[in-house]
Amino acid sequence: MEELRNIENYEQFKQALDTELANQAAGFVRTGYLLKKARDTDILASSGYSTVAEFAKAEYGLSKDIVSRYIAINDRYSEGGYSDRLQDKYEGYGVAKLQDMLTLPIEVVDLISPEMTRKEIAEVKAEVKAEEAISPIEVALEGTDVQQADMELCQKAIYKYAKDNPEKFKALVKWTKDGDSEELESILAPSGIAVLASRPQGIGKVFTSFKGEGQPVDILAVKNNEKHTLSMDDYAAKVREVFAQIADMPDAYEKTEVAPVQPENVIKKSESVIKKPEIESETPKSEPKESENVEKTECEVLSGEVVDNEPEEKQEEKATEEAPVAAGLDKNVLRGYAAAVSSSIKKLDRLWENRELEKCLEELTSIRWRIEQIQKNGGNAE
């Protein structure tokens, strides 16, 4: 208490507040654990309450949704998914950020650093949601970029990112001549913390995550969860391979032809802009409004106003799946439907975990439609 009274400047204030809010995350995990115990045992038998939701509402004014959120936080972030202890790797995020990440696939959560802001996390979520709107069939129909045929995943990701960001492209070509891994990191992640989003042809969204100076680099393909982790030196070597031939050309970094200037699709501290997905339907879509939870403070969360992570928007049907089945579908299309069913089942599990019932029904409708198409074509999607 005395330490808080002695705060005299912004740095001391910010550090103290970060510490207090981070400590609250452990409290949320413990609360979720207690509510789960009440749900799963006969602890409430003598209380007169029939369910934990009824108990929490009557005794603490907590809605059913808030109780579910406490439990979901414990499911995802506690040790073993059912304990009163926060996993070490989630210390420092704070309650609000942990809640914001609840609807993200755990593979994507692992790319996010505690230093990232809630706005930056919301931008990662927007990237993931944009990719989820593109079916596996659409991705398969993109084919393969012949220029990237022999590249590894990390190389395809950085090459596409650089092509979409001409200034970065030129900087990387120039760096290839005599730069080291530290200089590469300063080009791609000036603050040390960044999540680069790119979309190589035929692969879908790929994230490249930098978590601090000298830390390993994580590369994740969102569609199939293919993930690679490289040391910064190894990553630099892979990047050098991509741009080495270009760098050998006279005045390469000045004459290299790259894509027209577009907003930089990198998510990092104080410099975050989301690039639209490259595949769009013929009908223009309005840009999604920034989720209101970005503006809420962690204090609002701690006072009981649990953030709603997803906007109340109806999922759009995939354009490529609206055509009726005619004289039989190609086997590749059927395989795409089967892959989409598997993907939807995984997504449904996350939606059910967070009790997003309307979205569960929408996803079930989508699953049923795909399965019916497979049945109409002989039931063979192998």
Rank of each mutant, 00 (worst) to 15 (best):
V325Q: 04
Q262W: 02
L184N: 11
D251K: 05
Y235G: 07
Y70R: 02
P324S: 11
L21Q: 03
W369L: 14
K276M: 13
P288H: 03
R350T: 08
T297K: 06
Q155F: 02
V258P: 04
Q375F: 12
G48R: 03
A126L: 15
S231D: 14
T176P: 09
E257M: 04
I43A: 14
N377R: 04
E372W: 03
I7Q: 06
D218R: 01
L361M: 04
I158H: 08
E91L: 11
E356Y: 02
E372G: 06
T41M: 04
E182S: 10
L17V: 12
A221E: 15
I267L: 10
V239H: 00
E142H: 03
K268R: 15
A25W: 00
Q24E: 07
S209Y: 01
S209D: 06
R370Q: 11
A96S: 06
L351I: 06
E282M: 14
L34G: 05
S272E: 07
D180E: 03
N224V: 08
D251F: 08
E185S: 09
V242S: 03
N9S: 07
N377C: 13
K119N: 14
E264C: 11
A72R: 06
A340H: 12
Q201P: 01
K163N: 13
V52M: 10
L230S: 07
A339F: 06
D88A: 14
M232D: 10
E131Y: 01
Y235A: 02
E290H: 02
L153K: 03
K57E: 15
P260F: 00
L302N: 12
K376W: 05
R5G: 13
E280N: 09
E317S: 13
E278N: 12
A381T: 09
N74K: 06
D178L: 08
S209I: 00
L302Q: 13
D248H: 04
G32Y: 02
L302C: 07
Y49V: 02
L351C: 05
A25T: 04
V273H: 11
R118F: 00
E278G: 12
E317V: 00
Y77T: 10
E322S: 12
Q375R: 13
K57S: 13
N225Y: 07
L111C: 15
G214I: 01
K36C: 08
A25E: 00
I106R: 12
V217G: 06
E123D: 14
D145G: 02
